[in-house]
Simulated assay, not measured.
Amino acid sequence: MKVYGDSQSGNCYKVQLTCALLDIKHQWQPINILKGENSTPSFLNKSKSGKIPLLELDDGRCLIESNAIINYLAHGSSLLPTDPFLLAQVQQWQFFEQYSHEPYIAVARFIEKYLGLPDNRRKEYLSKQDGGYKALTVMERQLESTQYLIGDHLSTADISLFAYTHVANEGGFDLTSFPAINAWLARVKQQDGFISMENVN
């Protein structure tokens, strides 16, 4: 299988981390979105929206949306529960990540890290801080009572939230007042097969 993406993107890192934790062999195909490589006719033929990451299977079928990809890859493993309620809890956190976490933390990081915090985006950047801290507070409350987001075992819910949380400082977020999150980040990093964003392809 092939994975198309940007190794410094949190959404793409989710896929790379899942592959590393599950020892899934794949070919990494770098895509530079700032150069428009996700808008070429050949790429749009695989991803109609031009989104990355994109998973291309051996038979040519393609899948986009990072959380859908990692749940597909984790099917049948300990990272994805089979119990319907626990599975729904994983998806609950993944929806939270997409609608209450990523729009603030990931966007602020993109403006600062990718764009260099230009003056014409500074107001937007600052507007993301409040929402980002609210999302972190929700996570902190949960992780004060559980080791991982849905209990005592790592799941794709943790991978989804880890991706942008562990680099939240690159979007201006200070994690020093979130001890439960910091302990959780350390636990994720101690997993067998863990690979850091700096060491991915």
Rank of each mutant, 00 (worst) to 15 (best):
H153D: 03
F173G: 07
S177Q: 10
L175Q: 13
E140A: 08
A168I: 04
S145C: 14
A183K: 08
H153A: 11
G193P: 11
T146D: 01
I150T: 12
A163L: 09
A168H: 01
L149R: 00
Q147W: 01
V167F: 02
R141P: 02
R187M: 06
D158G: 09
M139S: 10
P179Q: 00
P179Y: 03
T156P: 05
L161E: 00
K189P: 06
D158W: 11
E144V: 10
R187Q: 15
D152W: 07
D192C: 02
R187P: 04
Y148K: 08
N169P: 03
Q191N: 11
S177H: 03
I181L: 15
E140H: 11
D158P: 13
D192K: 07
L161D: 04
M139G: 12
V167T: 15
G151T: 13
Y148A: 01
S160P: 10
E140I: 12
E144F: 08
D192A: 15
A186Y: 12
N182C: 05
N182I: 07
Q147G: 03
F162L: 12
S145I: 11
I159W: 12
A163Y: 06
W184R: 02
I181G: 12
S160K: 02
Q142P: 15
D174Y: 07
T146E: 05
E144I: 08
M139H: 10
F194C: 06
A183H: 07
T156K: 02
M139D: 03
Q147A: 15
L185V: 13
I181T: 11
A186V: 05
F194A: 05
I159L: 13
F178V: 09
N169D: 13
A157E: 03
T176M: 10
E140S: 15
R141F: 07
